[in-house]
Design a binder for these strands. Sequence first.
DNA 1: GATAGAACAGACCAACTGGTGTGTCTATAG
DNA 2: CTATAGACACACCAGTTGGTCTGTTCTATC
Lengths: 202, 202
Amino acid sequence: MTSRNPQQTRDNLIQTAFQEIHRHGFQGMRVDEVLRLSGLRKGAFYHHFSSKTALGYAVVEEQIRPLVRSVWLEPLAGMDDPIRELPRMLDALPERIPPMMREHGCPLNNLAQEMVDQDDGFRQRLLEVLNEWIAALETMIERGKIQGYLREDIDSRAVARFIVAALEGCIGLAKVDRSPEQWSACRSQIAGYLETLRPVAG
Amino acid sequence: MTSRNPQQTRDNLIQTAFQEIHRHGFQGMRVDEVLRLSGLRKGAFYHHFSSKTALGYAVVEEQIRPLVRSVWLEPLAGMDDPIRELPRMLDALPERIPPMMREHGCPLNNLAQEMVDQDDGFRQRLLEVLNEWIAALETMIERGKIQGYLREDIDSRAVARFIVAALEGCIGLAKVDRSPEQWSACRSQIAGYLETLRPVAG
DNA sequence: GATAGAACAGACCAACTGGTGTGTCTATAG
DNA sequence: CTATAGACACACCAGTTGGTCTGTTCTATC
């Protein structure tokens, strides 16, 4: 019998809940099922979380936010020329992400689209993560301008927002028609779009 | 007391259900609430539909599909130069769609993202609608090629898919951060992308 | 090693949820 | 006018859902 480890118990609940939310949405996620999968009881659950919603918030903060950072933010750090390196990063993406994300799409966008109109707590937290992502892209674009890789008259924020929108759109489309093989085609179009940001006179 | 009108009763249920699904998702939609809003009873409901899921299917076929056709397909019919006319259409879009769509986003994409992994009946029907949309764009692009408005070496299907993906992505993003005013910025980026499809030597 | 509080187990519950069954009314064909 | 089937109303239900309550066990601290 493993000794008590409250931190591990809490993590267990959050990770299991994350997977269930990813599969069925937050409304479709069942507390009892999370308990069954994690081998815990009601007592444990409501000791660590005040409600199902509180667990959902924790999943956003402690699972989705770090995941977005590692998948989308970190690769941006050392990027010089976005036009050349972003498509390359998108190529390597399918191998970098957990298999679950290829099946069920982006956890951030899934949960956001579902819960934004249902609960303001979700909206605030998910919007924070989304804005962090957009801001990181914006920073990269600004840097690209300074280094002469990008035109200086482009609207960095608008471009950053569009990149995120296009990515989420492509992921969502691939999820619906279950065509991961179309990802490269999608990447090519994004690469084409990025070319519009290239300075005219090199 | 209004006389009986089964067709109107059925439409009433479908339209009310459509709004409730749009607001809360299919899983969040409650049969009892639809009944309350439409002023009908369980007897009426299960006379016209065999289950909640059957109602959902009817909503896709009889509400979402026609809506997609009128909003996205019909404006494509008379288009000659997509690069010039598509952005113009996107400008006029906010006034052409019902206000509900500005709040809650695209009913097609919302329902698709939610239900694709939950129910194969939804997946098939929603995929059909989506493919009809993509096919219409593809046709327009092919026409644009022939008429010399677009480069001939572009992958029509990939471009069509990306346009849909970008649109759904932008709508989804606007839904999350509730910034309809960013729509024009988003439109500009799409317009920029479309420029990449322009023939080189006019 | 006593003890207080944290970390659970497990039984229980009220509200809700989709769905059923029976009966009644109404339109329509003959 | 009457028979018949469609179009509902209404009472009812079994299973599920998130959540509570009480009690027990572990563990850190003095």
